[in-house]
Design a protein around this nucleic acid. Structure first.
Lengths: 248, 248
DNA sequence: TCAAAAGTGTTCTTGTTACACCCATGC
DNA sequence: GCATGGGTGTAACAAGAACACTTTTGA
């Protein structure tokens, strides 16, 4: 047993009263790599399960602040695009067998009334990050914090699989409305990159030529004169998302 | 002072531990009448303020069940169409001066740590009801439960005005996607009624002839051969929303 | 020169918008 | 008849889908 970890975990459990009771946040962090969407999952130590990065809300912070802080603490992320999308509040939600297992590995046996083992209503957020900029790092509860393709999700705790499913649905629905897709790309990108993002999110192929026209017609892209150094073909333009123009 | 009311209110306050702490639900109930959208508001007794029908979640019920129960208890509603749309969780939200005032009218002075005076994170729902079927009735905290046009809202407690604003935005955004508009009408309605609903929600006039075609082309309306007994003009068809067809 | 990828043009189809037209009915 | 509201037809236009064509580049 790792004594240092154990004391850190005990320290965390002591913070219970500082949190809003019975309320949690779960974040679905989407990244785009090699033509597919991936989500950031924590490999929960001493269990065979994976988990979304989630956490609790301090008494004196807003839920949006809490979501940002949680992503920083549990996955090492900063400056992420966040969108609240749904609350998960089924009656029995919580009372986690898995939390119990995990704590048992450190010889911690919380009594049935312990704050961590109550019913939790969870606020779902999805986050969109630039895969290339992010260096995920696990927290004290996790062996690792890594990207997983949406198609091959491992076994997840609780209803986290369902939460991911709803997050994707919400992302799809809002894709055109909030123009959120750009948050998955670096500051500059080619039209092919952007199309890949849209295809990954929507789960279907789009027509290259029409996609290009549609994006350009939105009037939110700045074409940079610079070109890419590439392969045996015409060099594509680089584009940048122009937040100014987005205001209309 | 109304002794009977006072004891009912004390009874309610005693139920604190049965609720999930720090979590509430606020419902924006929309109705359609005389060409405009209205919302159901409670006139809070002993204060100059109005409030959305809201309440708390019992430990053993889901948040959706809680929302339905709250609408029943506080406004006398049944069988309403409900949609969760957003969580309101600013840091200082709660600590209600107004609740304190209201209780003071009954000589109740809760101490600062009282459960009702803490920060509350609130889950926003909007409800769509058939104005003609609903008989709103106030609860123990309210003088009345009545419809108010969206354009002339009275002074509301907390951030309830903002909640209504977000509810309307969400309703607009989802109007075509979820076909929610029909829930504001009786079972059968004319095309003019339906257009009125859409215009009230979107806040703009629509073209009569094109609206008709668009609705019919959705293939979700059943035209009833019956006609309406009317004025000095052609009698319109009645339509019924066909949930079967909506499944596509 | 050729293949591959990028960018633009052209056609066809579909959906929107605007408006003209006919129908039914009570006064 | 005529004003009023209900229903359909149609032309003009914009948006979308499908595909041909030209441009650029390294091998």
């Amino acid at each position: 047993m790792d004594i240092e970890l154990r004391s850190q975990i005990l320290g965390f459990l002591d913070k219970g009263p500082a949190f809003l009771p019975g309320l949690s946040i779960d974040c679905v962090v989407f990244g785009y790599h090699e033509g597919e969407l991936r989500v950031l999952l924590l490999d929960i130590r001493h269990t065979p399960y994976f988990s979304l990065p989630g956490g609790f809300i301090y008494q004196e912070e807003s839920i949006d602040e809490a979501a940002l802080r949680i992503l920083n603490e549990r996955a090492g992320l900063q400056d992420v695009y966040l969108e609240q999308f749904r609350v998960f509040g089924q009656a029995g939600r919580g009372n986690y067998r898995i939390h119990r297992e995990m704590l048992a590995a450190y010889g911690i046996e919380p009594d049935p009334g312990h704050w961590l083992l109550q019913r939790f209503v969870s606020i779902g957020y999805y986050a969109l990050v630039d895969y290339t900029k992010v260096k995920p790092s696990p927290d004290i509860f996790s062996v690792s914090c890594d990207w997983h393709p949406l198609e091959e999700l491992p076994e997840l705790i609780l209803d986290h699989r369902n939460i991911i499913h709803h997050a994707l649905g919400s992302l799809r629905l809002m894709l055109d409305h909030k123009l959120s897709g750009f948050n998955l790309l670096p500051e500059t990108f080619t039209m092919a990159d952007l199309q890949g993002v849209y295809e990954a999110i929507l789960g279907k192929k789009l027509q290259r030529t029409n996609f290009q026209r549609k994006m350009l017609s939105l009037g939110i892209l700045e074409r940079l004169d610079k070109k890419w150094t590439g392969g045996a073909h015409k060099a594509p333009y680089l584009y940048r998302f122009d937040a100014q123009k987005e205001e209309e």
